[in-house]
Amino acid sequence: MNRILRIVRYIVSNKLTFTFFLLGLVIFFFIVVPLGKMLISSAEEPALFWTTVLDREVAAAIWLTLYTALIATIVGFIFGIPLAYFLARHEFFGKKLVEGLINVPIVIPHTAAGIALLFVFGRSFAVGRAFGSIGISFVDSTAGIVIAMLFVSVPFLIDSAKEGFKKVDVRLERVARTLGASPWQVFTHISFPLAKQSIVAGNIMMWARGISEFGAVIILAYHPMTAPILLFQRFEAFGLDHARPIAAILIIVSVLIFVILRMLVSRR
């Protein structure tokens, strides 16, 4: 109690801190109130909530969302980490442009991203046709969901990993080389372990962003339905009351995963 009073007294005594505290409080409640209100109003109708929890279509959509986002994250890891390391360690003409282009998926409307992907992976286009010949279609398929999620969320992983690698002093790598390590050994024994925190954080961000993706996924793959699309479909077809429990479940699952992973990372 005394501690809280001390903090309050400190905040009030410093005008800058007090002003920033008030302004910060506004945005904090802006984030928390809608989420809390929805969870509370879902809890007010427990029967509908439990029916939704037990709805197979809802469970399938949530499971599909989680594992497609996970596959996208794994693919992003395999191709994104080398790029992040390359960007962190090398200077070259046009590097800023490359870095900017990598972040484009974050800033463009995700429906536009979905259309752009269709132009490459659609059935009438070269890459889509090539994959189609080996039985992989990106339209209305799990593969389509994965590439939509990958496209919009991989910049988070690349940026985070790049910053992590940049924080690893290049002289640590140089010392390791003089001690007998090959470039691969330097990467696996020094650079990667030391950047691990940022890489894991990037992976969590990418997975979380993939789970929440709607715009790009709906363009490429309306079916099979991921949770955000099912939520949209229920809202369109049955209204707010039927959409709310799905939204509540999605928020609970996402927050739980996010908190657990964050705890695991910080414990390391």
Binding site: L172, R174, V175, A176, T178, L179, G180, S182, P193
Partner: peptide
């Protein structure tokens, strides 16, 4: 560098922070 029999020691040590002293020396 790994084939030259040359070792370097920097001013600010550059010890591998995630390894113990033993593992730094054994690296």
């Amino acid at each position: 560098p790994e084939e030259r029999k040359v070792s370097i020691v920097y001013q600010d040590y550059m010890l591998f922070p995630h390894y113990s002293v033993r593992n730094n020396i054994l690296f």
